[in-house]
Amino acid sequence: MNPFSYTRSGTLENAVTEIARDRRAKFIAGGTNLIDLMKENVTRPSRLIDINHLSLNKIEETDNGGLRIGALVTNSDVAYHPQITRRYPLLASAILAGASHQLRNMATTGGNLLQRTRCSYFYDITTACNKREPGTGCSAINGFNRMHAILGASEECIATHPSDMCVALMVLDAVVQVTSNRGARAIPFAEFHRLPGDAPQIDTNLQPDEIITSVDLPGEGFAGNHSYLKVRDRASYAFALVSVAAALTLEGGVIKEARIALGGVAHKPWRNAEAEALLKGKPAGQDNFRKAAEALLSGARGFGHNNFKIELAKRAIPRALKQAAAGTPQSQTIKKVL
């Protein structure tokens, strides 16, 4: 870990001014990802700007009937908030599928969006990694890539985004509110994370001088028909091999709207408009669910150890849709797959 200086910001203005002044500075929120990366010398900020005292820790109703989740609201507080559990149970479920109680108590909404990949090479500075050090190569492509991407990867990087919460936010069409010295803007969730392409060192479209202030949820929360199904190597406290967030609106067994996002398969939560369109106006049944799964996985490619994820995703998607259609979402405490 490098020596660094520490500043505590009391106001949003101060925070964005500080970050604009020093390109090597970093915000620290819960610190559950950043500190680990610093200990491993993966990230070497010159300065930490502590944003925990900004007043971004509220969950409020928005004018358009949705909810605004402050960037500093902890993952636990989101997951157990009565408005969230009632109106957006899919989000609560996705959060509870991730990490551990202790981590969720520290982890924040903004930090969760910006957590970095769990690729083992990224974390080990003795190895080549384009994401960590552009131009050094990707150790995973011909190495141990069991956890890696099957969709949207590039020759430069095949890492996945590890978040569970983001998979639900993707389905919910959340909007990320950000601010900088240059003003505020709103980023639709689908445009927040990016694919690796030839610049895998850049995870998101957030600019270096911007701060996330909130994540806004639209009014529709799919509280009736949803499920978050996470398949992993043990029953808890493991990152997803494949996860599926499914949300449906049904009218007498016919699908009015379907939304599906996948976690653990790409550099960002994966959605596919075509696959969702396939389900529109169709009966909520296994055949249609399978077709949607095929469409979602079109173009999928394995790199050896992770080939199985393609088949796993093809099985997990219909299962999650079935759970959603039946109104029996996957429990995150009872580990039996429903």
Binding site: D124, T126, S139, N142, R234
Partner: peptide, 22 residues
């Protein structure tokens, strides 16, 4: 990792041991 001759699951996030839920 046979290319590197290095154990890559060298932490408790990658090296899984059973948790209570298992």
């Amino acid at each position: 990792d046979q290319n590197l001759g290095r154990i890559m699951t060298h932490n408790l996030a990658d090296y899984h041991v059973p948790v209570n839920a298992d």
